Amino acid sequence: MTLKLFIGNKTYSSWSLRGWLACKQSGLLFEEAVVPLYDEAWDKRREGDEFAPSQGKVPILWDSEIVVWDSLAIVEYLNEKTDGTLFWPADEAARAMARSMAAEMHSSFAALRREHGMNIRQIYPPRQPSEAVVAEINRIMELWAQARARFGTGGDFLFGEFGAVDIMFAPVVTRFITYSLPVARFAHAYIQAVIAHPFMQDWIAGAQAEDWVIEKFEAPVEA
């Protein structure tokens, strides 16, 4: 049976992006079901049986009767289904670092998430971010620099080849672009590599084709 992935609006749903990239990275066939978030039917729609295990949250992946929710769990499930060869570095030390970085991304950076929600259709003029966001950006730069210096020589991504840790940071990359946030000079090449990846280009095209506008996720544009 083909996998079925329920995701939210591609413009705004950062966790959906991670689950979707994981499915693309797996190379497995999957059916994509986009569920408009926060429209007039959202509350009723999220009560459906397909969302019950995740309490109405996306992404949620169904594999026949098996259900997996939460982006990092989806990554690990698909890693197991593909013999552990597509998501994490082969080197033990690199793999340990990549898993630690992915887990930190999963659980941290609350200020960046709260103050700079994902909005792929917009690019806003630079504004001074809060001290909390600056501290989180600095931490992300530190992680990226360490990964690139230690394990990134084999390609354009954090551990050389595109993998799970890049999937977890992909929505952050879009935030840096959308809000013109200050990043270290070395990071620009990595940001461009992520955005240029064919999977990301497919997602961005899907976001651009959407006609939904969720006002609470639209930041004001300064003159």
Rank of each mutant, 00 (worst) to 15 (best):
W42G: 13
P59M: 00
A98P: 08
V172E: 02
Q146H: 05
E136Y: 04
F30T: 09
S13N: 02
F169Y: 10
Q192D: 15
M118R: 14
A193I: 13
F87M: 15
A111Y: 03
D39A: 08
E142L: 08
W203R: 12
A135R: 06
L21I: 07
A41S: 10
Q201K: 15
W203Y: 13
W20N: 13
S130T: 09
R46F: 06
W69F: 06
N119T: 03
K44S: 15
E80A: 07
Q122W: 10
C23G: 07
E47P: 02
P182T: 08
A90W: 04
P129G: 03
P182H: 04
K10L: 04
R95A: 12
P126K: 10
L72C: 05
P53E: 00
W88P: 07
L181E: 11
I177K: 11
L78A: 06
M141F: 01
V183E: 01
P220L: 07
W88G: 06
I74H: 01
A196F: 13
I191G: 01
V173G: 04
R95W: 03
A111L: 10
E131N: 07
P171C: 09
M97G: 02
E47A: 08
K10M: 03
H197G: 14
V194D: 03
W62D: 03
R18K: 13
E161H: 14
A189G: 00
R99W: 01
A205S: 14
E65R: 11
A184E: 05
M105L: 14
L5E: 02
W144K: 00
R99S: 05
Y77A: 15
F159K: 12
S26N: 09
D83G: 08
P126V: 04
R113F: 09
Q146P: 03
A93H: 09
L72E: 02
N79V: 09
Q122G: 14
R45G: 04
R121M: 13
L61F: 07
E92N: 12
G155N: 11
V165A: 10
L29M: 13
L143Q: 01
P182C: 01
T85F: 00
I123T: 15
A94C: 13
V133S: 04
A145P: 05
V68T: 09
D63R: 10
M141T: 01
I167V: 13
T85R: 00
T174W: 05
G48K: 04
S14K: 11
F109V: 14
R95V: 10
D49T: 11
